[in-house]
């Protein structure tokens, strides 16, 4: 009930100011962005192109097309996740105290930071999505809406998760280690590099469900379904969106409602 009250009292202008400030800072890290883009493009135009020459064609006819939606989702994930790094740096430099002293509520500040992650993820993902449109096909308007919804929900989940990790401890090295660990777990235990059915055959236990219901895997499955790089995923795009919605709500509420009131770090 208190959550509903808090949500009703939110001032959109305050949230907008936080998002705008974070977006402004995003462009200041252009070299960091260049590094991230290099990594994602290297995965696509070096790793995928070369690896395509040794894959089993019966399993994956074209590895480049198979991995392209995965790299797109990873790009959005990495960018949204980067907001956690920035929050961590601010905690280290004591800047968080200044933010907490501003005449805005904690929830507005937290929502602003989480939405900043979403905006970053969406901006960063756009060129990769355009690349998919050029390389594979142009989806129908409803399919584009599905793609956007999945991307927003996935980046919302990742943004909340990374900020929650950064605010869980004051130790900067520990924050960085925990973020890297989470990043790599989500990265490897997903369907970005291998087809769903292969994971089901080789790891037919809880690991399959972890890999399959990982928010990145869900997003990748939806992209693959829409772009026709089908992998016979057992769920419809609508189901995938429901799963992603559950993830987004769970992580955002956990961060804003459970972590926030007990932490002096935002």
């Amino acid at each position: 009930m208190s959550l509903v009250k808090s949500l009703i009292s939110l001032k959109p202008k305050s949230i907008y100011m936080i998002v705008n400030r974070d977006l402004d800072r995003f462009w200041k890290y252009r070299w960091w962005l260049a590094g991230l883009i290099t990594m994602n493009l290297a995965d696509l135009f070096i790793f995928a192109v070369l690896f395509n020459r040794i894959v089993n064609r019966e399993l994956i006819p074209d590895y480049f097309l198979f991995i392209a939606p995965g790299i797109t989702a990873i790009a959005a994930f990495a960018s949204a996740f980067s907001i956690g790094r920035e929050v961590g740096v601010e905690i280290r430099r004591g800047f968080t105290q200044y933010l907490l002293s501003l005449p805005i509520s904690r929830l507005e500040l937290a929502m602003g930071r989480v939405l900043s992650g979403v905006v970053r993820g969406m901006i960063y993902e756009t060129p990769f999505l355009i690349l998919l449109l050029i390389l594979i096909k142009i989806p129908s308007p409803i399919e584009i809406l599905y793609i956007l919804a999945a991307s927003i929900l996935m980046t919302l989940t990742m943004s909340s998760l990374s900020i929650a990790i950064s605010t869980s401890t004051r130790n900067f090295d520990m924050q960085a280690t925990l973020r890297s660990f989470t990043y790599f777990i989500l990265f490897f235990i997903s369907n970005v590099f291998y087809p769903e059915k292969l994971i089901r055959v080789r790891f037919p236990g809880p690991l399959y469900y972890i890999a399959s219901f990982n928010p990145i895997s869900l997003t990748v499955s939806l992209y693959r379904e829409i772009f026709g790089v089908s992998q016979q995923y057992p769920y419809l795009p609508e189901h995938i969106l429901i799963f992603l919605f559950i993830w987004a709500i769970t992580t955002t509420v956990s961060y804003t409602h459970l972590t926030l009131p007990t932490s002096d770090l935002v």
Binding site: I54, N56, L59, S180, I185, F188, F193, Y194, L198, F203
Partner: peptide, 24 residues
Amino acid sequence: LMRVAWFTVQVGFFAYLITAVVGQ
């Protein structure tokens, strides 16, 4: 400890599945 953990995931999950993708 974290490096060892994710290296274990890399060689126990990623490497195992990517080997199946290669097949050769």
